[in-house]
Design a protein around this nucleic acid. Structure first.
Lengths: 223, 223
DNA sequence: TGCTGCGGAACATCGGACGTCTCGGTTCTT
DNA sequence: AAGAACCGAGACGTCCGATGTTCCGCAGCA
């Protein structure tokens, strides 16, 4: 096996086995390279790769550290991967979101505290009638993020967060604005919120399904 | 921004913009490094990182190529990421699977051809009474993979494929074997298959939910 | 006490040299 | 003429040593 590839697995193994724990600092490049029996250059290729997927955090002048390894952080790299997919697979990603989002809404209706739901209401209220596309996108993002977090499952929340890439979201909202469908979308958001606040998981699930399916149908009409 | 990091984004941009298409060959390292204005060493760090996430495929003695960029391929790196999570988050991953798997079963009941369902039956039949844990795991994996593929959504299939890491699966089956629950699991698989073959999406969804929840509950008892 | 400046440590980047592998054309054999 | 063996150019793999940048902590000063 290639030296660099082997180094990646060696470091991975050190972390998985518990020898290196989240937040730990790695030996300095020269030492680690020596210990793994390769050159510093090759080691750096391995570190660079692990850094891209947020497993390692290298700080110039300081050292290299293991990240917190939280699902949120590691699944962020998923968005990097999603970026490579062209329009024809965007619908497939969206379809998965259509499965997960209603489930998250349902779980949120059970798990969210009243403080949490109050925050949801605040997000809804922040939107005025003449918001720009950018603020619509940002608001939409926060609304769905809040609900996803409210599910109590960080993996689910992170997946949902990255599944619908910002670029897609922007395209959607631009389209919604153009055809004057912003109002309907806002109504659907409100309905989802009300169901969650009323602790009605099935209603929340239904509204979330309606909402996502609505957007998905619009996406299908605009290739 | 760091040179290497910048190079990663430059290459990414070349691919996303369509300048480099799936299967295309990159300029040789020396040329590309020169074109991007950095040393070959630094470029190699970038290439190494993109290679880890299956965006690039480097072949010694030949050249560096853009992969097919299929969802299946790119989402494979997800399993690399999942490997870093410890037992306490395994349940969260499993919970997501509990959401996706029933949806996939339901979709499969609609989309699978009779040839496909016949294949499912074959997989079920391949298991004899005294199978080893390894063959149980392999069979279980294939069964669920087939259904996931049958959903018609490659993204969903790949996600499901990587969500439940092989190590977890192995642990589960070891446990099931020990407590003699293999038979029940097999019955559930059969029920799922029959619902799909009978084109009953809701029944398939229900059995899949029962099946996954059953395993999940067992997982919760064994920390 | 708090700020400033300095020096060591660690990562960032570079250029070049040499090893290894792959591919494709050439040559030899049958 | 067909096939096998050979070989050399090209491309990636690995390593070394040197220099630049940045960060952290400590010493010194006001």
């Amino acid at each position: 096996m290639a030296v660099t590839e082997s180094a990646i697995n060696r470091i991975k193994e050190m972390i998985v086995s518990g020898e290196l724990r989240p937040g730990d600092r790695l030996p300095k490049e020269a030492d680690l390279a020596d210990r793994l029996g390769l050159s510093r250059n090759s080691l750096r290729e391995a570190v660079s790769a692990l850094s891209l997927v947020n497993v390692l955090d290298v700080r110039q002048g300081d050292g290299t550290y293991v990240t917190s390894l939280e699902p949120k952080l590691l699944l962020e790299t998923l968005s990097f991967i999603v970026d490579f997919h062209r329009d024809d697979t965007v619908l497939h990603f969206f379809e998965v979101r259509r499965i997960l989002d209603p489930a998250a809404a349902s779980m949120a209706a059970v798990h969210m505290t009243s403080d949490d739901t109050a925050e949801l209401a605040t997000i809804l209220a922040e939107l005025n009638d003449h918001a720009s596309v950018e603020s619509l996108v940002a608001n939409d993002l926060r609304f769905h993020q809040r609900i996803a977090e409210g599910s109590g499952n960080p993996v689910l929340a992170s997946l949902l967060d990255t599944l619908s890439a910002p670029t897609t979201r922007a395209r959607i909202w631009r389209g919604l604005t153009q055809q004057g469908a912003v109002e309907r979308t806002r109504d659907q958001h409100t309905a989802i919120y009300q169901a969650i606040a009323a602790r009605q998981p099935e209603v929340a699930r239904a509204w979330a399904t309606v909402h996502i399916a609505d957007v998905e149908n619009w996406l299908r009409t605009v290739p």
